[in-house]
C-alpha cells in the first residue's frame, strides 16, 4: 500500500535556512545541507527547498544550495521559489532537483506547466497553490500570498492537472505559520477534485494535525517546516504516531 509522505520544507535565504533559527539550540542547523542530512537520517520521505533569496544572483545561488543538499541525498528533492522560466527550471534540475515547484509563474503563464512537463515529464512538475478562504470559496494568491490571482483553488488545481502537473502543493494562507492545524476542508476539496497527488501545507502544529490531514483532509502527503526544527517533534516520532493511528507510512529506521 502506498505510504503517506512526510515532506520537510527548507526555507532558504542567501544559502541559509531561515525558519526555525529562533530555536536557540538549533542555530547551527541553519545550513540547508546539514539540516537535510538530519531529516534524512530521521526518515523524511522527501525534501523541498523553497528559495526566497532576493538577490540578482538568485539562480546561481539556488543551484549551489540544491547541489550541496542533493550531494549526499538519495530521496526526492523538489525546488521552488523563483522558478519563473524554463531556464530557471532547467538550472534547478541540472543542479540535482527531481521536481520544480511553480507558483506565480504558472499563474502568469499556465503554458509553462505544459512546456516543462513535455521536457522533463509530469513527475518533475509541481504546481504550488496558495489559497485563502473567501466566503465559501478558496481564492488563489500569487507572489507569496500578496496578490489575488482571480482564480479559485479547486478549478486552478484541475487546470494544472490538465496542463500536465504531476502534483499539487497546496498551502493554506489562513493557516500558514499559525500551528492551528492544516485546512482539511480546503485540502479535501482539492484532493477530491484531481487525480494527481495533493501535498498539504500550512498550519502543522502537532502530531494529530497530520492524522487529520491524511484522513479528513484526504491528503497524499503533508509538508511542514518549523515543526521539524523542534527536537520534540522529529520525523521519527511523527511516523510512529501516524502508524499507531493506522496511517501507512514508510518505516523509520
Amino acid at each position: 500500500m502506498l505510504s503517506k509522505r512526510i515532506i520537510a520544507c527548507l526555507d532558504v535565504r542567501d544559502g541559509q535556512v531561515v525558519k526555525g533559527v529562533h530555536f536557540e539550540e538549533l542555530r547551527a542547523a541553519g545550513d540547508p545541507a546539514a539540516l537535510a542530512g538530519r531529516y534524512n537520517a530521521e526518515g523524511i520521505d522527501e525534501l523541498v527547498i523553497l528559495d526566497i533569496t532576493a538577490t540578482i544572483e538568485t539562480r546561481r545561488a539556488r543551484a549551489d544550495t540544491v547541489r550541496r543538499v542533493a550531494a549526499e541525498l538519495f530521496i526526492p528533492l523538489a525546488v521552488g521559489g523563483g522558478i519563473h522560466s524554463e531556464d530557471d527550471a532547467a538550472a534547478a534540475i541540472d543542479a540535482g532537483a527531481d521536481k520544480v515547484s511553480l507558483n506565480t509563474a504558472a499563474l502568469a503563464d499556465p503554458g509553462l506547466i505544459t512546456t516543462l512537463a513535455a521536457r522533463y515529464g509530469s513527475q518533475a512538475v509541481v504546481v504550488a497553490i496558495d489559497a485563502k478562504r473567501e466566503g465559501d470559496r478558496f481564492a488563489v494568491y500569487a507572489r507569496s500570498g500578496r496578490v489575488a490571482a482571480d482564480r479559485e483553488a479547486v478549478e486552478w488545481a484541475r487546470e494544472a492537472e490538465r496542463r500536465g502537473a504531476g502534483e499539487i502543493l497546496l498551502t493554506s494562507i489562513d493557516r500558514d505559520g499559525t500551528k492551528a492545524g492544516f485546512d482539511c476542508v480546503l485540502t479535501a476539496a482539492v484532493s477530491s477534485a484531481v487525480s494527481i497527488p495533493v501535498v498539504a501545507s500550512g498550519g502543522a502544529g502537532g502530531l494529530d494535525d497530520f492524522v487529520d490531514v491524511f484522513t479528513t483532509g484526504r491528503a497524499d502527503a503533508a509538508l511542514a517546516a518549523s515543526i521539524f526544527h523542534n527536537a520534540d517533534t522529529n520525523v521519527r516520532a511523527l511516523k510512529r504516531h501516524l502508524a499507531a493511528h493506522g496511517i501507512p507510512v514508510r518505516p523509520w529506521s
Partner: peptide, 28 residues
C-alpha cells in the same frame, strides 16, 4: 487510488532475485 502512483511503497518479493538480494521484507 490516485494515478500517477507517486511515493513510497513496499515490494512483495515472490521469488529470489539477484537484484534485490539483501533487501529486507517490508522495505519501501
Amino acid at each position: 487510488v490516485k494515478v500517477p502512483h507517486i511515493g513510497w511503497n513496499t515490494i512483495d518479493i515472490r521469488r529470489q532475485g539477484s537484484i534485490v538480494a539483501g533487501v529486507a521484507p517490508g522495505t519501501q
